[in-house]
Amino acid sequence: MTDSDVAVSMFERIGGSATIDRLVERFYERMDKLQEAQAIRAMHAADLGLIKDVLKRYLTEWTGGPRLYSVEKGHPRLRQRHIGFAIGDAERDAWLLCMRGALKETVADAAARGDLDRALSGLADWMRNRQ
């Protein structure tokens, strides 16, 4: 096996923990500031500290980094964990607006950013639970 045969995780491609941390911070800054995100911001507690930490741990593991989420919380069961929130097209789109802006600010590699955007878009679409 050569070095070129070893798959590089998305976590490594985007710059690891430092990038995940910046991504999550920028994501929630956008959620706080953008008018289009008011409905999804209202689904969160006033203090975003805990959820920021959870999202950082989830994204770290989801992108192929260290297992920081599942060791504490088990299987993500994202749809089940979000079932109490009405997530339709508008909520998905608001979430993606915040995430895409954060991605542009934090992920320098355009190819990795595009790949991650596609993966997150699929995840956000799958999270819809309302018409």
Score class of each variant (00 low, 15 high):
M99S: 03
R13M: 15
D115P: 07
P76M: 09
V8Y: 10
P66I: 04
K33Y: 07
A119F: 01
R41M: 08
V24F: 03
I20Y: 08
G122Q: 10
R128W: 01
R13S: 15
N129I: 07
M127V: 03
Q80F: 04
E91Q: 04
K104M: 15
A18Y: 07
M10V: 05
V24T: 07
R113I: 12
W126G: 02
A119M: 11
G114E: 15
E61I: 02
D53V: 14
G15A: 09
V107F: 05
A7L: 12
R118I: 15
R41D: 10
L78N: 00
M43D: 12
A18H: 10
F11H: 11
Y58Q: 01
I51D: 07
S9T: 15
T19V: 15
D47C: 03
H82G: 01
R79A: 11
K33R: 10
G88W: 02
D32T: 09
A94N: 02
L48H: 10
L96I: 01
D21Q: 13
R79D: 02
D117N: 08
F85E: 02
I51P: 02
L96H: 00
A39Q: 08
A18K: 11
L34S: 08
R41Q: 06
R26C: 07
M127P: 09
E36R: 11
Q38H: 13
K104R: 08
R41H: 12
R30P: 00
R57S: 14
G74S: 02
I83F: 12
N129R: 09
A18V: 10
K52R: 14
T63L: 14
G74R: 06
H44S: 09
E91W: 05
N129D: 05
L97G: 00
H75Y: 03
V8T: 14
I51A: 05
N129E: 09
F11C: 05
R100S: 13
L116I: 14
A110V: 13
I51C: 06
E25I: 11
Y69C: 02
Y69P: 00
R57C: 12
A111D: 15
K73W: 03
A86K: 13
H44R: 05
D5W: 11
G16F: 01
S4Q: 14
I87M: 01
L48M: 10
G16C: 08
M31V: 14
A110T: 14
G15N: 08
T2E: 14
I83P: 04
S17F: 06
R118G: 15
T2F: 13
R118P: 13
M1W: 11
G74W: 06
D47Y: 10
L96N: 01
E12L: 07
S121M: 08
N129C: 07
R57K: 14
E105T: 07
S70D: 00
T63N: 11
S17D: 08
L103Y: 04
E61V: 02
D5P: 03
A7S: 09
S17R: 03
